[in-house]
Nucleic acid binder design. Structure first.
Lengths: 155, 155
DNA sequence: CAACATAGTTTCATAATGCAACCACTGGAG
DNA sequence: CTCCAGTGGTTGCATTATGAAACTATGTTG
């Protein structure tokens, strides 16, 4: 077997995320879905991607519980793809990707849009990582701990 | 031309990020680099990936300014791959991916590690998005604004 | 029902991935 | 200096994924 390696059984949560949304198109589809796109044709024309690839990606994300098929919305007999809570939960990942470009892109003048606070119209701050008690954490303030073994039964 | 579509000229900063690190392996390589790995063989054996693929990815990330080639470190004549500031800036993206798995993964019992506050050993909070004035923002509190045209010269 | 739009699937060519084998250079041992 | 294992790749070939275009099956409109 020479299949593309799967991270499905991997214990690393980053690898597990990539398994679901780590391809070229999924995150862009989710970005458009967060903007309100729902129909196959909308995704296809907005993203300009091949229909067969779109078809595969949509099905995969439905299987992963990121999108769900909804029966209608405008009364027609067609279906729509709507984000589940898991799908909407991708939002911080998109913000992180966006901010990385905004900060480090070599051609920032090519970036078309900036994410702003709707109330003030001012750019949002960089994502912050905080401790339970509210302290702002830097990468060096964190570490990885083995997940505590959850007893499988018995209360 | 039937090449894989490139997002290089795209105005969307998310697409531009994906252009650089949106493939199956780059983010995992950066994750290991953040843990201190530097040598070709270290990445190869830790990630278990094919050497030719690793070679291509490392070169690509060097070209993108994410990694830099450093002449040594232990005195040997070999080279090392070290993260640039741009590379270390990927950290929030990895945290976001990790937290997405921690929150939504269908088999959370398979997740091996959790990210904790080093001082207290307690899990870190979810990444927070704040306005310039410190208000906590939800996705609905934000919007996209066209990037202000930067005058090209003259002061 | 004719004509058109939507939402795909199929076909075929090309590009990316993965494994294994091969090769160049390094660093020591003798 | 020579031999030889280890490091850091590259090359070749098979398989899989991607992409463009053509085709199909419904739905929808006049």
């Amino acid at each position: 077997m020479v299949k593309r390696t799967s991270f499905e059984g991997d214990g690393c949560p980053i690898a597990r995320s990539l398994e679901a949304i780590g391809d070229w198109w999924s995150l862009l589809i989710i970005r458009e879905a967060l903007f309100g796109l729902r129909r196959f044709g909308e995704f296809q024309s907005k993203l300009g991607m091949a229909k067969n690839i779109l078809s595969v990606r949509l099905r995969s994300m439905v299987d992963h519980g990121i999108l769900a098929l909804a029966p209608a919305s405008d009364g027609s007999a067609y279906q729509e793809y709507v984000l589940t809570p898991k799908g909407r939960g991708v939002y911080p990942i998109l913000v992180a990707l966006r901010q990385w470009s905004e900060e480090f892109d070599e051609h920032p003048e090519q970036i078309a849009t900036i994410l702003v606070d709707r109330a003030k119209g001012r750019p949002v701050k960089k994502l912050e990582m905080r401790a339970e008690d509210g302290r702002l954490l830097s990468p060096a303030d964190t570490m990885l701990k083995p997940r505590p073994a959850s007893r499988r039964r018995s209360a």
